[in-house]
């Protein structure tokens, strides 16, 4: 497979990527909630090393899209904001991971068809059972 063909295939695959998840903080939020069930705003902020405003903005976008659920309560007198991944968000993340794995396969097959001269570092298979 020629480089141009590979890049064209990659371009098509990239267009299919979910723009809501394809951003560092939003992908981080969804990934964290996929493993952590329920996380507070503060836990997410520490985990993703981001600011209050940035996290709030991205979380709102995900919430609006129905990918995450926001639970507001009180811990003593302090307000507590927690997030949980919705089934729709779980499906979106799985789909995103599958698309990334597909892109890897396309790139690998292109490398092999060139005789395997270019050795790329292969990732370990990611567990998709969220």
């Amino acid at each position: 497979m020629e480089d141009r063909t590979v890049f064209r295939s990659m371009g098509v695959l990239q267009e299919r990527l979910d723009p809501l998840i394809h951003a560092r903080v939003r992908l981080g939020i969804v990934s964290a909630l996929a493993a952590g069930e329920t996380l507070s705003f503060r836990d997410l902020k520490v985990l993703l090393s981001t600011s209050d405003g940035n996290l709030s903005r991205h979380a709102q976008k995900l919430e609006k899209a129905g990918y995450i659920e926001c639970i507001k309560s009180f811990q003593g007198r302090m307000p507590l904001t927690e997030y949980r991944l919705t089934p729709k968000g779980g499906v979106a993340l799985r789909s995103y991971v599958e698309q990334m794995e597909h892109m890897l396969q396309v790139a690998r097959s292109a490398t092999h068809s060139r005789g395997g001269h270019r050795h790329e570092t292969s990732p370990q298979p990611i567990e998709s059972d969220y």
Partner: peptide, 19 residues
């Protein structure tokens, strides 16, 4: 592109592990 996709998957796995 291969390394880019690998990096994305590593990022997801890393966040999941830390979470």
């Amino acid at each position: 592109p291969q390394n880019q996709a690998s990096e994305h998957l590593r990022f997801i796995r890393d966040v999941m592990e830390r979470s």
